[in-house]
Design a protein around this nucleic acid. Sequence first.
DNA 1: ATCAGCATGTAAGGCGTTACATGATTCA
DNA 2: TGAATCATGTAACGCCTTACATGCTGAT
Lengths: 183, 183
Amino acid sequence: MAKDRKIDMVILGLLFHENLSGYEIKKRIDNSISFFWKGSFGSIYPSLSALEKEGLIEIVPCERESARSKNIYSITKKGCDELKLWLENTKSTNDLKYETLLKLFFGGAVDNSISIRTIDEFEKEIERDLLILKMYKDNLSKVLDCRDHVFFYLTVLFGVETYEGYLRWCNEARNLLRTTYYK
Amino acid sequence: MAKDRKIDMVILGLLFHENLSGYEIKKRIDNSISFFWKGSFGSIYPSLSALEKEGLIEIVPCERESARSKNIYSITKKGCDELKLWLENTKSTNDLKYETLLKLFFGGAVDNSISIRTIDEFEKEIERDLLILKMYKDNLSKVLDCRDHVFFYLTVLFGVETYEGYLRWCNEARNLLRTTYYK
DNA sequence: ATCAGCATGTAAGGCGTTACATGATTCA
DNA sequence: TGAATCATGTAACGCCTTACATGCTGAT
């Protein structure tokens, strides 16, 4: 397996729950984990081929419905083992790239009003996404008796907690820029 | 200029404040912005060459101290313009990849104790980094009369706010996993 | 009939990391 | 004199994105 191709783990993780096609995997990523991980078709399909070649996943032979160009994959025993190995490894890499903060850090080169606009834009996006996260939170909190939902709930909680922190910061930051003398 | 090579902007931003060598740029990145952006020598040196070829930066002719293999760069007028253009563009990409959350999301495949260990590891790292951030915050808060420091302070505030959110979440998440029945 | 969504895949290219190679300087 | 740090750079490689190419299916 590729050394650090985390998309492999995303796919194995999703297939651990249910059999899926590449297209469905993309949808799962977009709907469930895109707040903290992304994936494109250009990375998903090659990864599926590679994982199959290595015997970590396999195509589910489709009964009836002939001539359909749709490949449903399932995880193999070997794939489960690989997934668990990764889960049990405590070392995780969290790679964050905030272009917003980069622009703010270099705000000395422009008028404060520019930096405030950068914050406004960030805030707008966060407010929009927070609404979605809170909706998820409400819905999931009603079905926490199912173990599977707990894990989804945890990541949503993470989103809500950090996004609310972002919004508090937006206000602090703007106030500071407003009370600071302009260039 | 390369379409999306943000390292170019990091370099231009740093050179806007002071003339620096590639090695010093690396240090500035590690000490000041590594919480939200990273850079390696393997990306810095090629970027410096490219930026110089395009006339956005230039080598400061070093007086005395001959035969020193040290290139100090300064930003040009053209470089400043490019930097400002980027700063004025409100569209920013914040690209977050939390392997920690990925592992938690797929926690259904292992015992809850594994997920708790993943959280513990994350918490340890955050606690360590938060100490540094708070030290920065304390020091910077005393010199906010200098405009330059305000921008650094803002990014540190961001770090403190989000990291404290992380820690609150660690406790919530662990509690949830402990009160949930084990596999 | 046509448009949106389902579905798979490839190609080009960009960005970045790690590891390697090399050598100067400084300080104990 | 030896170690740490300063200092620059290249090569290999890996990951991923964007854009493109193609065709089916189902609803209006």
